[in-house]
Design a protein around this nucleic acid. Structure first.
Lengths: 228, 228
DNA sequence: ACCTGAACACCGTTCAAGT
DNA sequence: ACCTGAACACCGTTCAAGT
């Protein structure tokens, strides 16, 4: 037993990539994106800043890994539903909510090359499209549109919202955006102004799902076009 | 004449916000996003780095302004077409191509609060939706989906592509992405792997427009649902 | 009012030296 | 192999001093 264990025997407080990424997530959640410094992270891990570089290539990679972990965990909890459309909606909401809870993660999802989490999202969606019998030629387009929309909207929501649970000032925020838009030139921005006037009864999460449904309707019509 | 001019009389080389933003755009195009420094910018303008702060609040605002100018110029060139759908396609392509030419501008478009350029995009699209007689309740959702998709896809294309005109290594790039995806676990990523195998005959710009059409189909179906 | 440029605070990253 | 922490290079921003 001692023999097989010897290599694996690690001190409880040994520095590992996993511990570093977890500490980074905690730091990002606590202090925001600008709170993540190698110095602060080293302090949290009770080590030197240089030690981190032994396990992680650089800050960029660390941020990507942190975002990956957060979104992957959220995706892992998504179960299949009765219809592919519902499953797609669940995947979308899982991403939306996890980025809402970790607002720094949104930026990372749009990175290039794509993070593994983004590939997971597209994979989950793609399978549902196949289950929906979307023609092969349309599958890539459909998955792209859904993926783009999910990332983009989740990101924007997180940038607006700061922390999901306690939103006392949400109404104030909407009102301030609305009043700002109403000050735009009436000739140049008639549409924006009209939208601004409806902004009060706005539910981000419901709006997000309405967008998903709109895209699904487009996919359904492409499928019908193919049947003919 | 001397009297009315006195206030407006400025030396040719006077520092103005406009000159600063233009120099920033040139610097960003030449050296990339990380090439924009107050020191480098000051050198280009033959002044001290502190002088820039008299005309611009900070780097963030400067980046936003630069992106705004670039995208606004592209939008200004878009003319109305025979159908609202075609006009929307033209707006989308104008944004896509301008970000492709200035790849640093994509990130800025997704800023919060929204840049003026994004409001212009949504405005142009919104008016076309009204021309299409999209029900009022759907207009906001439809404009959001289109806006999200345009920004997200343009950004990703720019991050991939580096400079639009000379793309000799484009095929190589696609091939390398494809082979990377083919190395993913076959059980975990069947859809991604299938998509990867079709990646060779991929035209980003055509794909982008196909996505726009898919969304427009969704909008059309929402319109029909309303008619009933 | 507007410009100059040195100085400040802070950060990612490296690396010689340790264990 | 892995950790330490001082040092390096570089940057956004400020500000006293100039015109």
């Amino acid at each position: 037993m001692a023999k097989t264990k010897r290599k694996a025997e690690r001190r409880e407080d040994a520095l590992t990539r996993e511990r570093i990424v977890d500490a980074a997530i905690a730091l990002l959640d606590d202090e925001g994106e600008q709170g993540l410094t190698f110095r602060a992270l080293a302090a949290r891990l009770a080590t030197g800043s240089g030690a981190i570089y032994w396990h992680v290539t650089n800050k960029d990679e660390l941020l990507a890994a942190a975002s990956d972990v957060v979104v992957s965990r959220a995706l892992a909890d998504v179960r299949a539903h009765a219809t592919p459309e519902q499953t797609i909606g669940s995947v979308a909401l899982a991403v939306f909510d996890s980025i809402d809870a970790h607002c720094w993660a949104g930026t990372q999802l749009a990175r290039n090359p794509p993070t593994r989490a983004l590939l997971q999202i597209v994979e989950r969606i793609g399978r549902q499209l196949q289950a929906l019998r979307v023609p092969a030629a349309v599958q890539f387009t459909a998955a792209s549109v859904l993926g783009s929309y999910i990332i983009s909207e989740s990101r924007q929501n997180a940038a607006n919202g700061r922390s999901s649970e306690p939103r006392p000032d949400r109404a104030d925020f909407l009102a301030s955006v609305a009043s700002e838009w109403m000050q735009l030139d009436a000739d140049e921005f008639p549409f924006i102004r009209q939208v601004a006037s409806q902004l009060r009864e706005h539910d981000d999460r419901a709006e997000f799902l309405a967008g998903i449904d709109l895209i699904l309707a487009g996919i359904a019509s492409a499928r019908r076009a193919d049947d003919r």
